[in-house]
Amino acid sequence: MAAIVTAEDIAMSYGNTPILKGVSFALEARESLSLIGSNGAGKSTLIRCLLRLEPITAGRISLFGREIQNLKSSELRSTRCRVGVVFQRHNLVPRLSALSNVIHGALGRNTQSFGSMISGITLWSHITAGSVHRERAMDCLDRVNLADLAHRRADSLSGGQSQRVAIARALMQDPDLIIADEPAASLDPIAGEEVMGLFSELCREAGVSLIFSTHNISHAVDFADRMMAMKSGRISLDGRTGSVDLQTLKAEYA
C-alpha cells in the first residue's frame, strides 16, 4: 500500500538551534501512529513541518505522494485540505461562535474553482454559510458531543470544549489524514477516551490515517497501531504498539 506520509531524514532549526536532527518515517494509509516524548523533544515541531508550516533545512516530506516542499501554493492548499489538523493550543477564532469555527473547516475544500471565490466568502461565518454546511457542521459538533454549545462564542468555552470544537473543525474537512497535537491534553479522562475512540473509529471505518502526539502512555498504546518516541529531535523508538513494553517506554523519558 502506498505511504500517505513520508519523511526522509528531515532536519529543522529555529535560528541556530537544531530542533529536528534527521527524522525519518513513513505512514501507510489507514495506519494510526502515536508520538510520545518529553517536553521539548520536537513533537509539535515535527507536526508543523509535515504541514509546511515551518521550513525544513534538509530532507524530504511527502503527503499523499506529493513532495510538499516544491508545491505551488494552490497545490499545497489542495494537499493541506485533505489533512485535518488539531493544534496543541486549539487555535480557534476567539470572537466567533463554535459553529462558525467548525464551518471554517470547509474553507480548504473551496479553493479550487474560480466560483469558489464567492462560496468561500459565505464560509467566513455561520450567518452567511449555506444550510448544507451548517447542517454538516452541526453533525461534526454532535460527534464531539458539543452540539448544544454551537452558538457559544469560542472564547467563552472551557479548554476541553475548545479542544473538541477544534476536532469538529478537523472533521468538517472530511480528511484523509488527521494530525493531532495532544488532542486529549485538556480533556477530562472520559472526554479524552471518547475523542481518542472517535479517532480510532474513523481510522477503522472511514479509512482515515492518524498521527497524534500525547503524554498519555495508555492512549499512545491503546489508540494507535504503531508508536514512535522522540528524544531531542530524533526518533528513538518506532514499533507496533503491541511489541513495546512499559519498561522500554519509561526509558524514553529519561
Binding site: R80, V83, G105, L107, G108
Partner: peptide, 9 residues
C-alpha cells in the same frame, strides 16, 4: 494559521 493549515486561501 490553523485555517491555512487546513488549505484555506
Amino acid at each position: 494559521e490553523a485555517l491555512s493549515a487546513s488549505g484555506a486561501r
